[in-house]
Design a binder for these strands. Structure first.
Lengths: 190, 190, 190, 190
DNA sequence: CATGAATGAGCTTTCATTCAT
DNA sequence: TATGAATGAAAGCTCATTCAT
């Protein structure tokens, strides 16, 4: 009974993810979401207040899963470079394996699609990375620049790579990832 | 009379740019575009085939203006680093001054909004940068990696900085740009 | 357990009365009725066939309570004027104290909301008043006009007074009622 | 061109009048209104903001026509009784000939269907009758009671007679109107 | 060329009602 | 008996597009 609930809730989020990815938020009618999730259109409104709420909740869900993945195996005991490496590979692996989720997050971050409130909410989770960078700067290992710059040159580029990967313009195998990491690290290291 | 034509054409593109930036492609009805441009909805269809055509043409227009800006003052006579510097600063300056255009391009590149054909069309213009990178690799100055990687770590990060700048989370003054260039260059230089 | 039944039945009627009064028949969804009555929407269909049946039954219930009230303390032994006075005051007191019920009856009588069958059913109860009027006419005390006219000028005006009372545009104290009765009586007396 | 506008506007109001009368506000979908008026559903929204606006505007239109009719041939030079007679017969004739309009007004006045603002707006027009009554009271011809009472016992009863007339339960010929007027006047005269 | 009016198609959302439990 | 979940049908409304002028 509780199962059924979670099932439909999840099915709806998944359907939305797929459709918004392939067709955009516009051009993704509720009826299509319902059909792909295997429920009636009216059922959506049992689990979500409205279309905006559905998309917001999907965003938060995906963002949370992304962030929990990002810090797997990481502790602040690790030396700066090693710690950064762990996180960076986590993120890269997530984005390149869960491409649907990655593309969706990209779309959300570059489009006025998600409530500002939800966007803020979604940002909180990257805190440990910021702390790590701060430590790296103190230790003279990482350049003394704004965390926004560090993010722009290490994590953000992955979005582009994923997009090219999805379009099958590039492969990103183990070697490629190592090379990409090199570029990221060279960019921010002192 | 020719003036008038161009005026309305331009006004429509400008109106679309503004509205799509602020509200997204969905939630930007033709009627609102017409109103902001100061014309009748029917008039749009004199200049554009339909909504998709309007957005495609806007994309190409903006992309072209962006690319022409990007290579101002550049010749392939320049040494690799100097040539890259010229182009990079051009792009940075364009994106940070014409933020509306920059945000729009971001949205187009991360959303299934533009026809694949038009996207391809828009890509052509960056050719000289690719040629420059090839030269850099041959001269052993730039890392031997895919141009997609080079793009991801030098040009693409600017989109993130622009977004943060527009949200007034960061300033990007002359010094910041110099720092940003340093990160870009460190990333790809051998 | 029988208690429970009656409780829910009554609660549903009461909830319907309140909601239809405040929001109209349209704009009164079954779900809201259920919530206000403290039961599940599905439970309504145990006690009532459908929405129309619910509203019909409410109408008959209220009409019956109204009519039983109307003839309290009345016998056909009373002289005509005294008898009329008793009934008229009963009706006035009912309408002005049970304003929710009175407003609801008004709404039913002026709107195609209740089945014609139920409306006919509801009319039967006023019989004794018609008989009294007939007697009054024979005795030469009451004008020889259709009972519809007599009703229109004695009972029906009270609906207007109740409406104005509910909107707090007029008070209707003991004195006002006496004055109102005077107008009613002057209207129909020979 | 202007013709067309007025035509459709009027056709829509007329269609609404008919349907709301026969089926109630609930159970009168916009699509049915459109069909009866011979236009597309979308066209309604060129002339009216939404369903509520449509019904409000209809109310004001009908109320205005009613009131302008009510005071035809009346001047405050007339003696009180004569003046009252003129107005009363105007109202009676309007209601008994334009029964659709009369029934609609009844429905609006007894149902939470019209915005409070519009209801207030609609009330203004009866001013001259109130002034006449005031004069009658000063001259000792009319009972010294609230205008609400006077209205309840002279004008309001007509709504009941119209309803019975529409249901074909009574005829209301010239003689009947004279009798009805007698009851109204006896009610309020000193 | 330019437009206001018009619309069919389709959108999001609601709701009376049902059904498995 | 009682219900929360589910839904088909339909509601109000919007919008890209057309067309007579």
């Amino acid at each position: 009974m509780k199962e059924k609930n979670t099932d439909k809730y999840t099915a709806l989020l998944q359907a939305t993810l797929t459709l918004v990815n392939n067709r955009g938020f516009h051009d993704t009618p509720m009826s299509k979401i319902a059909k792909l999730a295997g429920v009636s259109p009216a059922t959506i409104y049992i689990y979500f207040e409205n279309k905006q709420d559905l998309i917001n909740k999907l965003y938060l869900e995906v963002k949370a899963s992304f962030c929990s993945f990002a810090f797997e195996g990481y502790t602040d005991q690790l030396p700066v470079k090693k710690g950064f490496e762990v996180i960076w590979y986590n993120i890269a692996n997530y984005k390149l394996s869960k491409t649907e989720e990655a593309m969706f997050l990209s779309q959300c971050d570059n489009t006025p699609m998600i409530d500002e409130v939800s966007l803020q909410e979604g940002l909180k989770h990257l805190q440990p990375l910021l702390v790590l960078w701060e430590r790296g700067k103190k230790e003279g290992i990482i350049k003394s620049v704004s965390p926004y710059l560090l993010y722009a040159y290490t994590v953000y580029p992955l979005s582009f790579l994923v997009a090219m990967h999805v379009k099958e313009l590039i492969q990103v195998d183990e070697n490629d990832r190592r090379r990409a990491f090199q570029l990221a690290w060279d960019s921010i290291k002192v």
